[in-house]
Design a protein around this nucleic acid. Structure first.
Length: 216
DNA sequence: CACCAGGCAAGTA
DNA sequence: TACTTGCATGGT
């Protein structure tokens, strides 16, 4: 079986086993973007607390973040950790959206995808994974999201090489699958689910995982 | 007590 | 280029 077929097969196995994961929780585009930043190296449970705090303080939008009080915002997002740098990242992206698009998603989505991606990626505090999460889960643009779990699982199944970079792995998925927002949404969520359940605990192969902390 | 969570940037060699 | 460290709270 070729790599591309295995990628498709892996999706079917995971979907059959775990079922739909219902990502991304969030009622608005802004809430999803804010969640994508707050969840960096942080459990989703703590992000939910932070989002609830923002909601209670009526600060759950990038417009409100842009004009809001720094102390009030950092206090609200504290449960999600790294609150100083995450405040800066939130402020940076809201500044970008204000300056370039006047906080209007109509203006943003009027541009071509690669320029949107470049713009978001240029924001200090937003790297590949967070950028793709925003494109996929907030803007519904079919962009595959690669994370540490994805790398580990694919390595264990010999679908990628240790030297492969973020964009190499991303390309494997986009070359193997039809370009479909719902499919990309579900596949990434399933890989995270599988990684959580098996990577550290039940799967003995995990100890042989060649990815070191901080690597890739 | 140690370790990790839906990362990223800056510094070092 | 490739690896290390700081950021920081909360759950197990």
């Amino acid at each position: 079986m070729h790599r591309k077929e295995k990628i498709i097969n892996l999706y079917n196995i995971l979907y059959k086993y775990f079922g739909p994961q219902n990502w991304w929780p969030g009622d608005t585009i802004d809430e999803i973007i804010i969640g994508a930043i707050l969840t960096q190296n942080t459990s989703w449970k703590n992000v939910e607390k932070a989002i609830n705090n923002l909601k209670k303080a009526d600060l759950l939008s990038l417009y409100k973040i842009y004009y809001g009080d720094k102390e009030e915002i950092t206090e609200a997002i504290k449960p999600s950790g790294f609150y100083n740098q995450k405040y800066n990242t939130l402020k940076n992206i809201s500044t970008l959206f204000f300056r370039n698009y006047k906080h209007s998603y109509k203006n943003i989505l009027g541009n071509d995808i690669s320029s949107i991606r470049e713009n978001i990626l240029s924001v200090k505090g937003i790297g590949n994974e967070t950028c793709d999460s925003i494109l996929l889960y907030a803007f519904k643009i079919p962009t595959f999201v690669v994370d540490t779990y994805t790398i580990r699982i694919l390595l264990r199944h010999n679908l990628i090489d240790i030297n492969d970079k973020y964009n190499d792995v991303k390309k494997l998925f986009s070359d193997s699958l039809k370009s479909d927002t719902e499919l990309y949404n579900e596949y990434h969520a399933l890989l995270v689910r599988a990684g959580k359940e098996y990577c550290f605990k039940k799967d003995p192969l995990c100890k042989k995982c060649p990815i070191k902390k901080g690597g890739l």
